[in-house]
């Protein structure tokens, strides 16, 4: 129900407009020229329209954006020291050339928790009988780096970065050397690697 005052004001306002009829074409807005109190009231109504309209439109966006930022929320990645058994010493070429090994571990993928699936790969090679591990992913933009036996080097097929066998940059755009990974020998022959990914593109090595 509208009160008497409102009726009067509306009548006053619309007096400048057309009478009852079809609005086939837009009409011009009525000139203000209203008493001060009525003008203030209409200003307040316009403000309320904008305010409430913005507020209620923001609700679905707010809920959406909030949940969209879910990946930034910290999640507990599970226990353990991060080391994964990759292979045994006997499987690494004795001649010092690198070989690629899959890293098989448990993996949480949103709602799934997979056990024993490939989560990445490492290059292992023996240096004076001691195994060294390099991440297989280029520190530039994350392409998979190939090993070229003929050239005895690592080569990123995306932007042509060239790495020496120890992982240092020979030629190319990569901001840092290939990422070395911590390695442990357990039970005499088991090769355990602390497998982790690093942010690409930076000269500093920052875990993801």
């Amino acid at each position: 129900m509208e009160n008497q005052e409102e009726n009067q004001i509306e009548s006053f306002d619309s007096a400048a407009g057309e009478s009852v009829g079809q609005a086939e074409e837009p009409v011009n807005p009525p000139e203000p020229g209203t008493p001060e109190s009525a003008g203030e009231r209409r200003g307040f109504i316009k403000f309320l329209c904008a305010f409430i309209g913005t507020l209620i439109s923001a609700v679905p966006f707010g809920a959406g954006v909030w949940s969209y930022f879910d990946p930034l929320a910290k999640r507990n990645k599970g226990g353990g020291d991060g080391f994964v058994m990759v292979t045994t010493l006997d499987a690494i070429p004795a001649d010092g050339s690198p070989a690629k090994f899959s890293v098989v571990a448990d993996k949480v993928d949103a709602w799934n928790r997979f056990s024993n699936v490939s989560i990445g790969a490492v290059y292992l090679r023996l240096v004076d009988g001691v195994p060294k591990a390099l991440h297989t992913v280029c520190p530039h933009l994350g392409c998979f780096v190939d090993y070229r036996p003929g050239n005895k080097d690592f080569f990123c097929p995306c932007h042509n970065s060239n790495f020496k066998l120890d992982g240092s940059l020979a030629v190319g755009v990569s901001p840092r050397r290939m990422d070395p990974l911590d390695i442990q020998i357990r039970n005499k022959t088991e090769v355990w690697v602390k497998f982790q990914n690093f942010q690409p593109g930076h000269s500093d090595r920052v875990p993801v």
Partner: peptide
């Protein structure tokens, strides 16, 4: 019956619409 004079959509009807939307929300 049409008891009142005409008015524009803005702001009175918009205001009523907005309030109704607010109530729904």
């Amino acid at each position: 019956p049409v008891a009142k004079r005409d008015a524009y959509f803005w702001p009175d009807q918009v205001f009523k619409d907005t309030v109704a939307c607010l109530a729904v929300m």
